[in-house]
Computed example of a mutant assay.
Amino acid sequence: MEISQHDMTDLFEQLGLGSSPDEIKDFVKKHRYTRDSTPLHKASFWTASQSAFLKQAIEEDADWAELVDQLDVMLRDE
């Protein structure tokens, strides 16, 4: 069984976003949102395809799920 090892750079590339450390940091800083019950994939700054990817990753517990969870924490961290 092959297990994919992804990192945050890979996730940002998968989402079609800038993936350098500075670009990731800037994205998180720009898109930080409150700790409410809104699921990550419903945040207003995602495109429809980005939202669908994030939702599917979590629902299917895909190999991206852990990174999506990490991104969620990064965006909600104050």
Results as ranks from 00 to 15, higher is better:
12 F>E: 08
36 D>Q: 09
36 D>R: 04
52 A>T: 12
37 S>I: 02
18 G>N: 03
32 R>I: 08
31 H>Y: 15
17 L>K: 09
35 R>Q: 12
18 G>W: 04
42 K>M: 11
74 M>N: 12
26 D>H: 11
78 E>F: 03
71 L>R: 02
21 P>D: 14
24 I>S: 08
72 D>P: 01
54 L>N: 02
23 E>P: 12
17 L>S: 13
73 V>N: 06
2 E>Y: 14
57 A>Y: 04
65 A>K: 04
71 L>W: 12
78 E>S: 02
33 Y>H: 14
13 E>Q: 14
58 I>S: 07
37 S>P: 00
29 K>W: 13
24 I>R: 11
10 D>S: 15
4 S>R: 05
16 G>W: 07
57 A>P: 02
31 H>I: 05
66 E>D: 14
14 Q>N: 07
12 F>H: 09
69 D>S: 10
30 K>P: 01
28 V>L: 08
22 D>I: 00
73 V>M: 07
26 D>W: 08
50 Q>T: 03
67 L>A: 04
49 S>N: 11
34 T>I: 04
4 S>I: 04
29 K>G: 03
29 K>P: 00
59 E>H: 13
45 F>S: 10
72 D>N: 11
26 D>V: 04
45 F>D: 15
9 T>I: 08
4 S>Q: 06
47 T>V: 06
57 A>D: 02
66 E>Y: 13
37 S>A: 14
9 T>C: 09
35 R>F: 13
31 H>A: 06
38 T>M: 13
71 L>G: 10
23 E>I: 00
56 Q>R: 11
34 T>W: 03
27 F>N: 01
65 A>P: 03
41 H>P: 01
3 I>G: 12
2 E>T: 03
35 R>A: 15
23 E>Q: 08
30 K>A: 15
